Simulated assay, not measured.
Amino acid sequence: MTTNPDPTPERAVRLQARGLTTGYGGRPIITDLDIPVPDGSFTVIIGPNGCGKSTLLRSLARLIKPAGGAVLLDGADIAHTRAKLLARQIGLLPQTSTAPEGITVIDLVSRGRHPHQSALKRWSEADEKAVQDALALTRLTELTTRVVDELSGGQRQRVWIAMALAQQTPLLLLDEPTTYLDISHQIDVLDLCTSLQRAGRTLVAVLHDLNQAARYATHLIVMQDGRLVARGHPADVVTAELIRQVFGVGVRVIADPETGRPLIVPHAPAPSPAPHARPTPPEGPA
């Protein structure tokens, strides 16, 4: 049963899926899904592999055409919104991205300003500031002249994040933004997401690490088999029973000593039985 354990009233919603049915090659991954994204939230989508997390995110960004239902932005179906106008409202960090051969960091990040350009509006001081701010936030200022393909996987991921930030959209969608990053840079990215959310942006991210999701999300969406299982604040949603039901893993859920948020601790595996000792053969006559 779909639940919403959060007893507080719904916050304003700019972006939502309404009766969404979608998938690939005529095979539905998501069927008749209703998902509101609270405005000003850091919403994190979790669930097992193949449950429809990335499919939902790609649908919210209009990368997948629904077979039924709609994605609404300010009450209007985004299927009918002009591409450049939509790109000024919703930014996307996809799961995998390929940079044009030979492009530098500064040139790729600057492409985030494309939705704001036109034949009558050329590069401006506001564009330059947006790019420089994005580079500073992702700690890439010293790498601006480097070729993107020459960077490490973690550095490349930060370049794509910077490009999405330079787009300066009020809504930002991130599909596994911590991929390729070591733990230090994972924390940097998630702390940055929190800062952006506190500054007024709405973020929606797919994460695999349940403890990171519980620690950073202000709103959690839990999916299984293309359907919504639960949504709400992590403190209200994350329980041992939910994790067992959705992921098939036995856990304890305790309070994180740093944040008070739910902390998921998997049960230790049962110890292996001790090998049977070989019986000592009886001594025979010498």
Results as ranks from 00 to 15, higher is better:
Ala240Ile: 02
Arg14Val: 07
Leu165Glu: 09
Pro273Val: 11
Lys121Ile: 11
His114Glu: 02
Ala270Lys: 15
Leu151Lys: 01
Thr141Ser: 14
Arg215Cys: 10
Val265Pro: 02
Thr81His: 09
Gly154Ala: 02
Leu63Arg: 11
Arg82Ser: 13
Gly250Ser: 15
Val148Met: 00
Arg158Phe: 05
Ala199Asp: 15
Arg62Lys: 13
Val131Tyr: 03
Pro94Asp: 09
Ala134Gln: 00
Arg113Asn: 06
Gly40Ala: 15
Leu192Gln: 08
Leu108Pro: 03
Val206Tyr: 02
Leu63Glu: 10
His80Ser: 14
Val147Thr: 09
Val105Gln: 04
Arg111Ile: 00
Ile45Asp: 02
His219Val: 06
Pro257Tyr: 08
Thr178Arg: 03
Leu33Thr: 10
Thr98His: 15
Arg113Asp: 04
Arg201Met: 14
Leu120Asp: 10
Pro9Thr: 12
Arg113Tyr: 03
Ser118Lys: 11
Asp6Cys: 13
Asp74Glu: 14
Val249Asn: 00
Phe247His: 07
Arg11His: 11
Thr138Trp: 00
Arg198Tyr: 04
Pro279Tyr: 10
Leu57His: 02
Ala235Arg: 15
Arg18Lys: 15
Thr144Asp: 00
Lys84Gly: 08
Ala166Gly: 09
Thr104Tyr: 05
Leu137Cys: 00
Thr3Asp: 09
Ala277Ile: 08
Ala79Met: 12
Gln212Ser: 13
Glu258Asn: 09
Arg139Leu: 04
Ser110Arg: 13
Glu176Cys: 07
Ser54Asn: 05
Gln212Pro: 04
Arg261Ala: 15
Gln89Trp: 01
Asp149Trp: 00
Ala205Arg: 03
Leu143Ala: 09
Ala274Met: 12
Pro234Ala: 10
Arg252Gly: 01
Asp77Gln: 07
Asp107Lys: 15
Pro177Arg: 08
Arg111Ser: 01
Gly248Arg: 03
Lys65Asp: 14
Gly226Cys: 08
Cys51Phe: 02
Ile187Thr: 12
Leu137Lys: 15
Gly26Phe: 05
Asp175Thr: 02
Leu165Asp: 05
Met163Pro: 07
Tyr180His: 15
Pro275Phe: 14
Arg11Val: 04
Gly260Ala: 06
Ala286Glu: 11
His116Lys: 11
Asp107Tyr: 04
Ala70Cys: 07
Val253Ala: 07
His114Ser: 11
Ala235Cys: 14
Asp182Trp: 02
Val249Met: 11
Val109Gln: 03
Trp123Val: 13
Ile64Arg: 12
Leu171Glu: 02
Gly25Phe: 08
Thr202Leu: 12
Leu181Arg: 00
Val105Asn: 05
Thr98Gly: 06
His116Asp: 07
Pro273Glu: 13
Arg244Asn: 07
Val251Pro: 03
Leu93Asp: 05
Gly26Ala: 10
Val44Pro: 10
Ser59Arg: 06
Thr144Val: 14
Gln245Gly: 00
Leu93Asn: 02
Leu203Tyr: 09
Val222Gly: 12
Ile46Leu: 12
Tyr24Trp: 12
Ile64Glu: 14
Gly68Asn: 06
Leu172Pro: 08
Asp107Gln: 15
Leu72Ile: 06
Ile45Lys: 07
His80Met: 02
Tyr180Asp: 02
Asp149Cys: 01
Val105Arg: 02
His116Met: 09
Met223Gln: 08
Glu241Val: 10
Asp107Thr: 14
Ala79Glu: 13
Val238Met: 14
Leu86Tyr: 05
Ile183Asp: 00
Ala205Lys: 05
Leu151Gly: 01
Phe42Glu: 07
Gln168Cys: 05
Arg198Trp: 03
His219Tyr: 14
Arg278Tyr: 07
Gly25Tyr: 08
Asn211Thr: 12
Ile254Lys: 06
